[in-house]
């Protein structure tokens, strides 16, 4: 390592530049009104902070009734997918400076799932689709005494889809899902992929049958919205394509 001098992060930190940003948030609370409305909040914030930090500033210092889900605050728990400037993102993984803070930043609930209050949606249909694809390892025969063996290459085969945090950013960015909530949606297919391509699993056929359904993979129109939306960088569309191919060739 070169002798550490003041690096770029620190150079910027010295003059901690707070800026004024407008958060334009889609508010909805059926206890108060059946109509959703846009509400503007102006906040002072360091542009290197997260959108989630901005939401907290509003909730903690201005309007305690602003409601959203969050937990880990660093992109690992999947709680805070929302539509930020029209794109699905995690609020805790989006820095203010990266989404043009000169203009109002619009924030609304993800689409295709029922909004319950402000940025909170009903996640039940999403998790139901996940549960429907048998998202667990199925094996036959006797359990070995030690671990099952798996080569590093076989392990690598499904690595990408193991990263999913079930945030629903993909599914709720999918136009097919918006039009028809019966469609399993990308996230469920990603989680099926994770097992179909796991060399240890023996229920690939069953899962493929489930996904061959009229609400299964064939509904996908390859718009790539899901891949763009995924905060974990999973190649969602590619995974769906691989499942389609496996259905045709029955090879996986």
């Amino acid at each position: 390592m070169a002798t550490p001098t003041m690096d770029k992060v620190e150079a910027e930190a010295v003059s901690s530049p707070y800026i004024t940003v407008t958060f334009r948030i889609r508010r909805f609370n059926p206890e108060i009104s059946d109509a959703a409305v846009w509400e503007d909040f102006q906040i002072e914030i360091d542009p290197k902070e997260r959108v989630l930090d901005g939401l907290h500033k509003i909730k903690w210092d201005v309007d305690g009734s602003l409601t959203f889900r969050r937990s880990c605050a660093h992109g690992i728990c999947g709680s805070d997918a929302m539509r930020i400037n029209g794109k699905n993102r995690l609020a805790c993984k989006t820095l203010i400076k990266d989404i043009n803070p000169d203009k109002p930043i619009t924030i609304e609930a993800i689409k295709g799932l029922t909004v319950l209050k402000d940025l909170v949606v009903d996640m039940e249909p999403f998790f139901q689709a996940y549960r429907d694809v048998m998202p667990f390892l199925v094996t036959k025969g006797n359990e070995p005494t030690r671990e099952r063996l798996q080569s590093a290459e076989d392990r690598e085969r499904f690595d990408d889809t193991t990263k999913c945090i079930l945030c629903a950013a993909c599914t709720s960015s999918c136009p097919v899902f918006w039009n028809d909530g019966q469609y399993f949606g990308p996230a469920a297919i990603v989680n099926a992929h994770r097992f179909i391509f796991d060399s240890r699993d023996e229920a690939g056929e069953q899962r493929l049958e489930i996904l061959n359904d009229k609400d299964g993979v064939w509904r996908c129109r390859t718009t790539f919205n899901c891949t763009d939306a995924c905060p974990r960088g999973i190649e969602v569309t590619k995974a769906i394509q691989e499942v389609k191919r496996a259905l045709i060739t029955r090879r996986f």
Partner: peptide
Amino acid sequence: AVLDLEKMGLPFNRTPQGTI
């Protein structure tokens, strides 16, 4: 405890021999 998790499906990194 580790072997239980592997049998439940946990994708551990593997050695060249295929063990955890």
